[in-house]
Every structure is written in structure tokens, then in C-alpha cells.
Simulated scan of single mutants.
Amino acid sequence: MTLQPPIRKIYFGVAERRQMFRLFDRHAQRPNRWENDDSALFAGEWFEIARAEHDYMLDILPPLWLRGEMFAMREFLTDSVTSVFYTLRIDGKVRYFHAYCDLAQTRSPVEMRDAIVERESWPVKAMTHRERFEHVWSATHDEYRGYAGERFMPEHRGKRTILVHGLGSAELRLLDDLTDEEITAKLPEHLRHLPTRVAA
């Protein structure tokens, strides 16, 4: 049985068009790009977009399929993973989302929809520990993020890295090694003071 990657929110706020395209391939700098099955990097990622971006993507090509509140892109990103766009009513408001779903898993688009609705229906605005890391990675410019190479221990090579500024210096660090304080400092001001919620 193949373990499916977790469904995860990777960006807070509504991504405008430029940011949306950056988020489509936020793993562009990965080593050996396209040489391996990169499905697990993408499958399960989702973020919110505006209606204009949703409609723009619907008009680019005829969708692979259109089912009620969702449609799938005809072009696949990797193997069986493609973009699925959603129009969802959450707490009385219509909102729009993009997600990468593995269509080899028949229920993937439905499970993604349900996960988005559940996540966005939290009664208190909060971020999980992992969502803080994912937002920082998504919002950081390519010049300041990357993947561990030869200067890192062999067991860390290929893991995500990010540039951290200290007292008069900058250091490339593993993203997962950043402290809560360092991650908080990299969040935009309006997200820094959100409570941390334990993922369900």
C-alpha cells in the first residue's frame, strides 16, 4: 500500500496571479528535477486564490473534467498529479482554491475539498506549526531558499534550506531546523501573533 502525502495548506492569504504561478512550482529548485517521481512533493498542497485567477485558469484550456464545484486541469504536473480548482461556499462566503490532487486515487479531489472546507471552517484564526514553515517557504524568494547540497551532511542533502540573517551575517540553514522564533520572525506581521494550533 502506497502512503499518500498529507493534505497541507502552503500559503496564507489569497494568492494574486504572480504568487499563484510561483506556488504552482515552489519546488522548482529541487535537485534532479524531473528525474524522479516527484508526485509526493506536490500531491496534497493547496492554497486560496481569487475568483479572477480561478476563472483565468478555467479559460486557458478545456478542463480534463468539470464536476459541480471543481474542475481539473488537462495538463498533468507529474504522472497522475494535476491541478484541481475549487469554488466553495464556506461560512456563507464563496471562496476559490487551487490544489494538487493525485487522480490515481479516485477520491483524491473529494477528500481535498473536504479537507479545505474543514480547515477553513476553524472557529478561531490560527496556524499549525507546519503551516508556519510552509508559508515561510512559499513566501521566500527563490534566491533565499533552496536544497541542501555538498556542504551539508549526506543525510541532509536534498532537504529544504533557507537563508537566515543573524548579527551582520547570513547563514544557510535547513528549514526544519529553524526555531519557532526564527520562523515567526520570517512571517509577515499580520501572521506573527496568530495562535499555534495542533493539527487535527
Rank of each mutant, 00 (worst) to 15 (best):
A15H: 11
E16V: 03
R17N: 14
R18A: 12
Q19T: 14
L23V: 06
H27Q: 01
A28G: 07
E35T: 04
D37S: 00
S39N: 09
A40S: 08
L41H: 13
A43E: 00
G44D: 01
E45Y: 10
E45T: 08
R51L: 13
D55N: 13
I60H: 00
L64M: 10
L64A: 14
R67K: 12
G68Q: 02
E69P: 14
E69F: 14
M70S: 11
F71T: 02
A72Y: 00
M73Y: 11
E75R: 09
T78S: 01
Y86R: 06
V94M: 01
Y96K: 00
Y96A: 05
H98I: 01
H98N: 11
H98V: 00
A104S: 11
Q105G: 09
R107M: 15
R113Y: 09
R113P: 13
R113Q: 15
D114E: 14
I116W: 07
H129I: 09
R130C: 12
E131R: 03
E134C: 08
E134R: 06
A139F: 03
A139M: 04
T140W: 01
E150P: 13
R151W: 13
R151Y: 10
M153S: 14
M153N: 14
E155H: 12
H156V: 07
R157S: 08
T161Y: 00
I162Q: 04
L163T: 02
H165L: 08
L167G: 11
G168S: 03
S169A: 15
E171D: 15
L175C: 07
D177C: 13
T179H: 11
T179W: 15
E181V: 14
A185H: 03
L187K: 04
R192G: 07
